[in-house]
Computed example of a mutant assay.
Amino acid sequence: MKNEAMIDACLACFAACEMCATQCIKLLSEDHLRCIALCRDCAEICALCVKLEERESEYSHHAMRLCADMCSACAEECEKFATHHSHCHECARACRECAEECMAY
C-alpha cells in the first residue's frame, strides 16, 4: 500500500530543495556552498523515495530512513540562513515535514 502522505512530502521537499539550491547559487556566496550541496542531495533522495514507493520496492523503507537523515541535515543547514532568505526558510520547513513523514513510514 502506497504512503501518499510520504509521497506528497517528498515531492514538496524535492521542489523546495531545487528552488533553494538555485537561489543560493545565485547569491554567489561561499557561505552557502554546504546549503547548495545538501539541497541537491536531499532533492535526489526525495525523488528516489517517490520512485521506489511508486514501484512498491521492497527497499523503500531503507531509502526513507536515509531520506529522513538527509532532510534533517538539510533543514539544519537551511535554518542558518532562514531569517535572511525566504527560500531557505521554506526549504527547511519542507525538509522537516518530509523527515517526519519518512520516519513515520
Rank of each mutant, 00 (worst) to 15 (best):
N3S: 04
A21P: 04
T83E: 15
M70Q: 09
A99G: 07
S86C: 00
A94N: 06
A47T: 11
C91F: 08
L38Q: 11
L52S: 02
C78N: 15
A47I: 03
R96T: 09
A47K: 12
A73H: 11
E53I: 02
T83G: 02
M64H: 12
R34G: 02
L27M: 13
H62G: 00
L66C: 06
L11H: 03
D41G: 13
A99C: 06
E79F: 07
T22P: 00
F14K: 02
H61R: 14
A75Q: 08
A12D: 09
E76D: 14
F81P: 01
M1N: 10
A99D: 05
C74W: 09
E79L: 12
E18M: 10
M6F: 13
R93K: 15
A16D: 02
E4I: 15
A73V: 06
C17P: 08
T22R: 14
M19P: 00
K26S: 10
A12T: 03
S29P: 01
M64V: 13
E18W: 00
M6R: 10
A94V: 06
S57R: 02
C78K: 09
F14Q: 04
H61C: 09
C35F: 02
C39I: 06
A9F: 06
H62S: 05
A104H: 09
S60W: 09
D69V: 13
R93F: 08
E56Q: 10
A5L: 14
E44P: 00
C20D: 09
A92H: 12
M6H: 10
A21T: 07
S72M: 08
S60M: 10
